[in-house]
């Protein structure tokens, strides 16, 4: 290859590279400016765990220990006693070690009453690890602050402005496509 050809090759390659990079200049930047604009996470996103109470403030959890048995990282500790009036159990202690949790949502899959749910609060960084050893009050507080949460049994639930708990519209649900497509099929037939 002659020197001239080599020079031409180099110039051409640099030109192609520059043109490719230059094309991006006019594209919209994907930067999301995090601390000023909070990202809008999908409702099934697993960022933290919470323990939901019913609308009237009573406990949804029936303390069946299913989540404790299903947890792969073994971070859930539950102690319970029999309810003296009526049946069922009451919580003595419900701890989730959010430090060692692997956020796989196996506990949420196992929960038969959709009490333990996944929420989208990812801003959990801390100077002190002890703040992440969640007890039952901490988990309730997480649920009270959350606007939406997900559990496989009830799907995505949202908290309305007047404090009621409602099922989210099908556009937010995993598998909501079936519900969205159904009316169209009925109209067709």
């Amino acid at each position: 290859m002659s020197l001239l050809q080599e020079v031409w090759q180099a110039v051409k390659a640099i030109g192609t590279g520059m043109a490719t990079v230059h094309k991006r200049v006019y594209e919209e930047a994907p930067t999301e400016f995090y601390p000023y604009v909070k990202p809008d996470l999908p409702p099934v996103s697993v960022q933290s765990l919470a323990l939901v109470e019913n609308e009237d403030g009573s406990e949804r959890c029936i303390v069946c220990l299913q989540c404790e048995r299903a947890c792969p990282a073994q971070v859930i500790t539950i102690e319970r006693h029999r309810n003296p009036e009526g049946k069922g159990f009451l919580i003595d202690r419900f701890d989730i070690d959010l430090v060692n949790c692997m956020y796989c949502a196996a506990c949420v899959e196992a929960c038969p009453v959709s009490s333990i749910v996944t929420i989208q609060d990812f801003e959990m960084s801390t100077y002190d690890l002890q703040t992440l050893k969640a007890d039952v009050d901490f988990l309730h507080e997480q649920a009270r602050r959350a606007r939406q949460w997900y559990s496989p049994k009830f799907g995505v639930e949202v908290r309305t402005e007047d404090g009621r708990i409602e099922k989210a519209p099908p556009e937010m649900q995993p598998g909501g496509l079936a519900e969205i497509l159904k009316p169209a099929e009925e109209v067709d037939s």
């Binding site: 933290s48 430090v99 692997m102 956020y103 959990m124 960084s125 801390t126 100077y127 992440l132």
Partner: peptide, 8 residues
């Protein structure tokens, strides 16, 4: 500073 999450 500690960050929880797996991965965060």
């Amino acid at each position: 500073v500690y960050i929880p999450g797996c991965p965060p």
